[in-house]
Design a protein around this nucleic acid. Structure first.
Lengths: 167, 167
DNA sequence: GGACATTGTATCGGGATGATATAGTATGCT
DNA sequence: AGCATACTATATCATCCCGATACAATGTCC
């Protein structure tokens, strides 16, 4: 899933500006399976427009530069459908926490307890945030993703609590 | 956790060549929280050597180019300790599966069932692989990481099975 | 015998990240 | 009232990273 397909997918759910796409990817249910920065979103939108997969209408705002509201063209929808027909690639997970835990054993074993305690507190924060997002979300697919995220957070928290004494 | 710190961490567990580091990151317990390619590992090792954080001894092999076996210097160990003293950054998760599921609802809803079935099969494969790795692993920290991975796979699988009918 | 996998080092193009620039509005703190 | 911070909005840039590829010899499967 490259940034181009991600943009097509988000626009398939509704028109948006580059700034709004960034917000959706940084917060909300999208943030649990994707990331993207301005430096990748804006070039992607420009190129997709050149290729005719999306189009924008400029909405003028008083005393501000024009807002470019992008929307999917029929050709873009076709491209997205083709991309979704393929089976998705494997998940990619990066965790500084797990890396730190593994390396700490060799370099600073007295730190592992703190690392796990910090992590437990972090899970509590994440769970609270997910539950808040879930309250305001009505789309079944978005709720599905949020509930998936909640299940993962609870599972990770439970595992750490069970194992803390073992290590 | 940038590639440099990752290399320092791996070398803190034992000496290794660039090729071996790549193998550890691509397979084994490291693969569940990190990724790195030759294109990032080799430049990182070169730069760390220049900075005196690691050193290598060239082991000559018959009819092959010399093997560069890298090891951590005391300065490198100090740098790693400093890096581990900071609290680790948040986990980053990218899932084409979740993205496809969310976008499929808008573009090709009939595909969601297949996506979930494929995913369940994929989890079964992953669980088997993790259990095999766990059998041959004795280091407590490595076992911890593998068991963490197993717990996550089981939780994801259970969630999908429970929810498949709901969607 | 040929194709493919393994051990090993290394480079390169294209793409992504994170920081920064610009610029006006709105909100909040003291 | 004054100041700082945050928000909306687009855009660029250095730096880093990924995936593919090249080279080179050996081992292994069919």
């Amino acid at each position: 899933m490259d940034i181009r397909t991600l943009c097509l997918g988000i626009l398939s759910l509704g028109d948006a500006t580059g700034y709004e796409i960034k917000k959706m990817v940084a917060e909300g249910s999208f943030s649990f399976f994707s990331e993207a920065s301005f430096g990748s979103i804006y070039p992607a939108l420009t190129k997709l427009t050149e290729e005719g997969l999306i189009a924008f209408r400029a909405e003028s705002q008083s005393k501000r530069p024009d807002k470019k509201v992008y929307s999917l063209t029929s050709e873009g929808r076709k491209t997205l459908e083709d991309a979704l027909a393929k089976s998705p690639g494997p998940d990619r997970h990066r965790s500084e926490f797990l890396a730190a835990l593994l390396f700490a054993e060799a370099v600073a074993p007295e730190r592992t307890g703190d690392l796990i305690d910090e992590r437990l507190a972090h899970h509590d924060v994440q769970i609270e945030q997910l539950e808040m997002l879930l309250e305001g979300e009505n789309s079944p697919a978005s709720r599905f993703v949020l509930e998936y995220g909640l299940a993962m957070q609870h599972a990770a928290r439970r595992f750490l609590e069970d194992k803390r004494n073992t290590l």
